[in-house]
């Protein structure tokens, strides 16, 4: 019994020591990690809204989380303002449901009139070269200025069908993401 206590004690000391070291390293890396994440988000938003006031993103009031059972895939939206403080639109962060590896996160930019002004991907856990075709301007252009995705559904299928690669899969996932962002906008943000 005494031997066991000793063994457990040694393991505990090693673990405690590890925890201590990790805590110290965490002190140093936590800030850069946070900054890198924020940088990625603001880069994505700037792609869609080049005129945004860069400082407005630092304001926590401009980030609103979405908790809505009907829109499980929507995470949060960002209120986009230019330097004069005018409302330009919204960027909705969507975790695309049913994408190939379940990791497709897309920002859908919607202007105040309810038109899609751009898409930008935060995470593209798709196979490089295949699913990432959804990144190409040709693909993104289908969505510009639309208020409803139903009429582009057929176009996408004609253009992108590729039963081996799963590319249809990603494009459908993106289409669904845009549609639910638009639905959410029409239901909650349009007349705000």
């Amino acid at each position: 019994m005494k031997k066991y206590i000793q063994l457990v004690l040694i393991l505990f000391i090693i673990s405690a020591f590890s925890g201590l070291i990790l805590g110290v390293v965490n002190e140093f890396t936590a800030e850069p990690i946070k900054a890198a994440n924020a940088e990625k988000l603001s880069k994505g938003i700037k792609e869609i809204f080049p005129n945004i006031d860069p400082l407005s993103l630092n304001d926590a009031n401009n980030t609103v989380s979405i908790v809505d059972e009907d829109y499980e895939e929507l995470k949060e939206y960002y209120i986009i303002k230019d330097t004069a403080g005018n409302l330009l639109g919204y960027a909705v962060k969507v975790l695309a449901p049913g994408s190939y590896n379940g990791k497709l996160t897309v920002l859908v930019g919607i202007n105040t009139e309810g038109k899609v002004v751009g898409l930008s991907y935060l995470a593209l856990g798709e196979t490089p070269g295949v699913g990432s075709r959804v990144e190409e301007p040709d693909f993104i252009n289908y969505f510009l200025n639309i208020t409803d995705t139903s009429h582009i559904a057929k176009l996408l299928i004609d253009k992108d069908i590729d039963s081996v690669s799963g590319a249809t899969f990603s494009s459908t996932a993106v289409k669904n993401s845009v549609q639910s962002a638009l639905d959410y906008f029409n239901a909650n943000l349009k007349n705000k």
Binding site: L7, I10, I14, I21, L22, V25
Partner: peptide, 27 residues
């Protein structure tokens, strides 16, 4: 390290190192 717990002890050491590399790369 006593012989009986050498494997768990090694695993803790390795896991610590991996976590450090993980955090540094993330940053």
């Amino acid at each position: 390290i006593p012989n009986d717990i050498r494997i768990p002890a090694y695993i803790v050491v390795i896991a610590t190192l991996v976590t450090i590399v993980d955090m540094v790369m993330n940053a």
